[in-house]
Design a protein around this nucleic acid. Structure first.
Length: 492
RNA sequence: GCCCCCAUCGUCUAGAGGCCUAGGACACCGGCCUUUCAAGCCGGUAAUCGGGGGUUCGAAUCCCCCUGGGGGCACCA
């Protein structure tokens, strides 16, 4: 029976590295019809962050990673760890250490200075019972350290790294139980993985170095160790370990920016795993069906935001119009200036949404792409109006200065045409304006470009005549008039 | 400093001795479509497979060395 777990510590917002680990564990469990356990490793009282736990749960839910057991909290299982630590002392696999933090710090400084590998010098390892009683009598609360065998080596077969060997001599007597009675990660992790009958440990590469300690612990406890699978890490742009200081790496942040969970899942799955030499887009079901440890990569991967954005665009376009509108609406209502009345009109959204859906890469981009549909006034530089017309003037061998009167005339005629338009639909409008453009001696690019800027305030927009018909006759006329005013301020 | 891991286009990756004059994707550059921008389609640039030795008839693929990168070395996880 496959039993895996995701065991984050609530020390901050979960970042994509954490969630990718969760995803792989979840995929592995689902693929094998196993159990996915959620366990919160809250054994560090000092580093605990308020709200982190909730953020972890909500990120998992958002990504669709449902768990079958838990969340278990290590803080609620203290007696179990303490009992285990005591048993280890009794069996001779661990011992009490009375060294002060100050002494330890000094020791490490000295080791570094002498270019020696830092590590506990085992001062307390062979304390006699009498010495121990003496220190205890002084009121010092000892920690419990694991007694690493002096000779020999640990060897294990990691499912992605293969055979890995560590000499005991490179391992130091690490702490199992802290003075505050809380276990360290090493102890709690092993006790729980055993207690929860975890069969496979899929965790980030950074844990590889502590695996020999864990194996020795399993051995001392007489527990059967799980299979280890060390996942390649997700790297920041400079190839270093991802951390909070590397910008927007929390999953919550991606959610806020308007990435879809399906895209996140798909993209993250491809960071360190691949199906074959060509498949990029996979649904969650397909990922479950195909996921396998054999196809995990062994190298770290830089998180390529560009590609994520592309993929998110793909998912956005796959949405039904109704679903897209549902999501776009909340982002629009969040991002549009307060002058735009809420709630947004559903029927109006239905008209403009198709043109935005094929252009947006994230939902956060929607308002920037569509604001002119909602604003009362659009803002732009006058010069933008003339760009295309100037080109036409130049082509006709006329002076650039003539562009302004040309544009004014074009706007006047355009307003007339809009007023007279019998059917306010894209096709008839286009027909009428093409004819008009010819009459004005303007190229479609010049004429339509002028109108585009006047109506949307920008040089790139959805198709012009769709835009006009969505905006309505009245609003279009107003904007053309405003544009005219910008060109001839004195005559206004 | 010590220990461990890793090494294919800028990035994500395919490749498990001959299908590789190294494939796909993002990005980039062209073209088509087109009123603009997207989307879509077509095409292109881009890795002497980190370097050097082996093994082999044959190596991106196996072995060794070097180099480079990363991770770990807390009473943090």
């Amino acid at each position: 029976m496959v039993r895996v777990r995701f065991a984050p510590s609530p020390t901050g917002l979960p970042h994509i590295g954490n969630l990718r680990t969760a995803l792989f564990n979840w995929l592995f469990a689902r693929h094998h019809g196993g159990v996915f356990v959620l366990r919160i490793e809250d054994t560090d009282v000092a580093r605990k962050v308020e709200g982190a736990e909730e953020a972890i749960l909500s990120s998992l839910r958002w990504m669709g990673l449902d768990w079958d057991e838990g969340p278990y909290f290590q803080s609620g299982r203290l007696p179990l760890y303490q009992k285990t630590a005591r048993a280890l002392v009794e069996s001779g696999h661990a011992y009490h250490c009375f060294c002060s933090t100050e002494r330890l710090d000094e020791m490490r400084r000295e080791q570094m200075r002498r270019k020696m590998p830092p590590g506990y010098d085992r001062l307390c390892r062979n304390l006699t019972p009498a010495q121990r009683e003496e220190l205890l009598a002084l009121g010092i609360t000892p920690v419990i350290r694991f007694r690493i065998p002096l000779e020999g080596q640990v060897r294990f077969n990691d499912l992605v790294k293969g055979q890995v060997t560590f000499n005991h001599s490179t391992l130091d007597d690490f702490v199992l139980l802290k003075a505050d009675g809380f276990p360290t990660y090493h102890l709690a992790n092993i006790v729980d993985d055993h207690d929860m009958r975890i069969s496979h440990v899929l965790r980030a590469d950074e844990w590889l170095a502590s695996t020999p300690r864990h194996l020795l612990l399993y051995q001392a406890l007489g527990y059967e160790p799980p299979q280890f699978v060390h996942l390649p890490m997700i790297l920041s742009d400079d190839r270093s370990k991802l951390s909070k200081r590397h910008g927007a790496v929390s999953v919550t942040e991606f959610q806020v920016q308007g990435f879809l969970p399906q895209a996140m899942v798909n993209f993250m799955a491809l960071l360190g795993w691949s199906l074959d030499d060509h498949t990029e887009i996979l649904t969650q079901e397909e990922l479950v069906r195909h996921f396998s440890v054999e196809r995990l990569a062994r190298t770290g991967a830089i998180f390529n935001r560009e590609k994520l954005e592309w993929m998110n665009g793909v998912y956005l376009r796959k949405l039904t119009l109704e679903d897209f509108i549902g999501m776009a609406q909340s982002y629009l209502e969040r991002d549009l200036p307060p002058s735009v009345p809420r709630p947004l009109n559903r029927g109006y959204l239905l008209q403009m949404a198709p043109f935005i859906q094929e252009r947006a890469r994230t939902l956060g981009e929607v308002s920037g792409l569509a604001d002119f549909f909602f604003l009362v006034d659009v803002n732009y530089e006058v010069g933008l109006l003339l760009k295309g017309i100037e080109k036409d003037a130049h082509k006709q061998g006329r002076d650039v200065a003539e562009a302004t009167p040309m544009a004014v005339e074009a706007l006047d005629k355009a307003m007339e045409a809009l007023e007279q338009a019998a059917v306010f639909e894209p096709e008839p409008l286009e027909q009428a304006f093409r004819v008009l453009g010819e009459e004005l001696g303007l190229s479609p690019g010049g004429f339509f470009g002028l109108l585009r800027v006047a109506l949307t305030g920008r040089t790139a927009s959805p198709p012009l005549f769709n835009t006009i018909s969505i905006l309505s006759r009245e609003r279009s006329l107003t904007r053309l008039a405003v544009a005219r005013g910008k060109l001839e301020p004195t005559r206004l």
